[in-house]
Design a protein around this nucleic acid. Sequence first.
DNA 1: AAGTGGTCTAGACCACCAC
DNA 2: TGGTGGTCTAGACCACTTG
Lengths: 255, 255
Amino acid sequence: MSTSQGQRDAASASADDTENSRTPFYLQLRDRIAAQIATGQLSAHSRLPSERTLSEQYQTTRVTARLALGQLEAEGKLYRSNRRGWFVSPERIIYDPSLDVSFTDYVTKQGGVPRTETLQSTSLTVPVWLAQKSGLEEGSEIYHIQRRRYIDGRAILTENIYVNPAVCPGLLRFDFNQSLWKLMRHEYGVSLSDKHVTMYPTALTDPQAGILGVTPGTAGLYVNRISRNSEGVFIEFDEEFWLHDALCISVHAKG
Amino acid sequence: MSTSQGQRDAASASADDTENSRTPFYLQLRDRIAAQIATGQLSAHSRLPSERTLSEQYQTTRVTARLALGQLEAEGKLYRSNRRGWFVSPERIIYDPSLDVSFTDYVTKQGGVPRTETLQSTSLTVPVWLAQKSGLEEGSEIYHIQRRRYIDGRAILTENIYVNPAVCPGLLRFDFNQSLWKLMRHEYGVSLSDKHVTMYPTALTDPQAGILGVTPGTAGLYVNRISRNSEGVFIEFDEEFWLHDALCISVHAKG
DNA sequence: AAGTGGTCTAGACCACCAC
DNA sequence: TGGTGGTCTAGACCACTTG
């Protein structure tokens, strides 16, 4: 007999009930938490009460509380870290993948604290899929660099970069915790002129989710970019896996 | 005593268990369904068995089955429709928001069946936020068009378009179920030269989720675009709400 | 009317993290 | 060691869609 649901609408001060049917409780709860974020009672990177505390506080179950939290996560207003808890998402970083500006520069300029970790830097053999994208011969040599980047201490993207060794011989001797583009420009005089950027929203799955320390299935944005110089020579293929709430893509097109 | 979990790993023929700990059952289930999609046993737009049937088939509960389905939805491999069931997502449509090509044209070219519905077309007063973006005077007149677009009968995006009446006087007399850009070009000789595109992944919430007939919280991609002519005159502001699994953004940048 | 997903309850054990 | 989220069970009623 205690399976009654609802009856909590009275408590929802929300005004946007343009719908005809009752607002489910998890959406009411979502709105209440969202209001606390909007008013600044909960500020960026601050931690929410535990799921058990929330469900008790709002007299519901963990499942329902998690539904509300999941909504806010999907909207990019909350994120979770490992098994540590739920946190308020900071502002999205504005990012233009068609420009070769340094991550460090634009994050700093927008008030964030950037950090880059190099996870791997090796030389390997061009696999089929990359041969097709780059035009390089299958089996020839290519440099592979894998990195993880942070903003304000939170890992928000991991990337795989594949660089044509013909244009940057000996590249692997350098330190990649800095801007790769600056390095290529200053040390090799490489300039990029033709970029093809592809991106789509998708869930982060096993390898990348693990690297970023998030649950598999966490919403992400996949971005890749093929760069060539003015003669059409392949320079690099870069693929990035971003947490979906961390960025806002901004592209200018002229002509 | 019957609360034992797991023990189903034996049934998972999956080979990517590079992790050290046991793969949760909902991920095993996700992989099994994904395999059926990959092999074509389940083809685009075909419907899956009901959640109850699935949970019985795989000897688990609806909650766990829904977790697996939710994963595939987040990856863009499945979508749901109202209370009708779960369906296999078709290929993503490749879309370049920096080009003024017609939706109808590029969807058709990629083998899809496009359809456009005009939900509203009215003249209204420029609100503050739009005045800031466009440079138009607050309170002056602007045309507003709201549309919903389909691919293969599935509603995949809704958009709000705001057009400067100074460059397209009398625009509202036309039919907007066709390409707006073609219309502007042919009838008014308008050509776009400067476009600023902004986009980020987020959940679809109340107004847009309702228009597209999906549950609030469904993953989406928000895209907006401000277009000006070669003299810098504001032409249109367009904002689009896409289902996240429906598209793949592709942008070329030269120079 | 029957079946679907949508919402919700009231618990449980597990794996990991911080103290 | 205690608390957190992660996973899972076994049910329930509701709202909507379809025949």
